[in-house]
């Protein structure tokens, strides 16, 4: 099994992913509007929760909690915490045959396309909620180069971990054909455990342990923590390492599942 994807191939696939999504700019703006509206709702609920806890909760004050709210809303699209069934649909329709008859690794080519997608969505989906948040409740991102560098690395890793998890879930279609059940379970689990609804740090101890035993905090909570400067030095390095390990584990699992799955493949529809 050859896993190498030469840079020119990767670049074309990333570019393809970027351009494919940039074809639908109005959809991106509509998505940004939704993220912003939900951001406003989340901000008021979070402020309410914080007030009833006496103004501080698990290291968050009003300023850092609002930063968390608007950052999660800005990153929800790039790290794609949504339903994604492109690959499973192709397994179901048999179009996966086309992907399999190309001289490139299927998982890595989808990974590149997803990086392109995330790169496109970063500004049109990320900027509006951040600007609204900055103008309304305030968003505080420390102006320290190291924080920015760690945040950027954490975000890229978050995008990649998210892809690796979603790809693995999609590949179950080789056995299940219809993955709506898996999809729903994934969506509920990932949305809660990634820290989208409330920060993972607010979870009761036992639930935090459960969350940290999944790759989901690496998708959103960790990037947000890194960007907002919650971690620094060794803690930041540890966070990035944890993300990297999850990435490796999920990509490997996806690769193994893909190899096994294509052996049991029954190409649908002639």
């Amino acid at each position: 099994m050859s896993l190498a994807l030469p840079w020119p191939v990767a670049w074309q696939l990333i570019r393809g992913g970027f351009r494919r999504h940039s074809a639908y700019r109005a959809a991106a703006l509509a998505g940004a509007l939704t993220n912003t509206v939900f951001g406003a709702i989340k901000a008021s609920i979070t402020l309410g929760a914080l007030a009833s806890a006496g103004g501080r909760l698990a290291g968050y004050d009003a300023k850092s909690a609002m930063t968390y709210v608007w950052l999660t809303q800005a990153l929800i699209a790039p790290v794609s915490l949504f339903v994604w069934n492109e690959v499973s649909d192709r397994v179901r329709s048999g179009d996966i045959a086309v992907d399999l008859s190309r001289p490139v690794n299927v998982q890595l080519s989808y990974l590149c396309a997803d990086l392109g997608r995330a790169a496109f969505e970063f500004l049109p989906r990320g900027l509006p909620p951040l600007l609204v948040g900055w103008a309304s409740t305030g968003v505080h991102i420390p102006a320290r180069p190291l924080v920015w560098a760690a945040g950027a690395a954490g975000l890229v890793l978050g995008v990649l971990v998210s892809f690796a998890c979603r790809f693995l879930m999609n590949v179950t279609a080789f056995w299940l054909m219809e993955i709506r059940g898996v999809q729903t379970l994934y969506l509920v689990a990932s949305n809660i455990f990634c820290g989208l609804l409330i920060p993972v740090h607010w979870f009761p101890g036992w639930l935090r342990t459960v969350a940290n035993a999944t790759p989901f905090p690496s998708i959103l909570q960790t990037p947000v923590d890194l960007i907002s400067g919650r971690y620094s030095g060794a803690a930041a390095a540890h966070a990035l390492l944890t993300q990297s390990l999850w990435l490796l584990a999920m990509l490997t699992a996806g690769q193994v599942a893909l190899a096994r799955g294509s052996r049991v493949l029954v190409v649908q529809g002639g």
Partner: peptide, 19 residues
């Protein structure tokens, strides 16, 4: 082919894939 992209892009991607 890549459904959402101009046809030319599909050929560019395929050319890269086939090195």
């Amino acid at each position: 082919l890549w459904w959402d992209l101009p046809l030319r892009d599909s050929f560019e991607i395929l050319a890269a894939i086939h090195r």
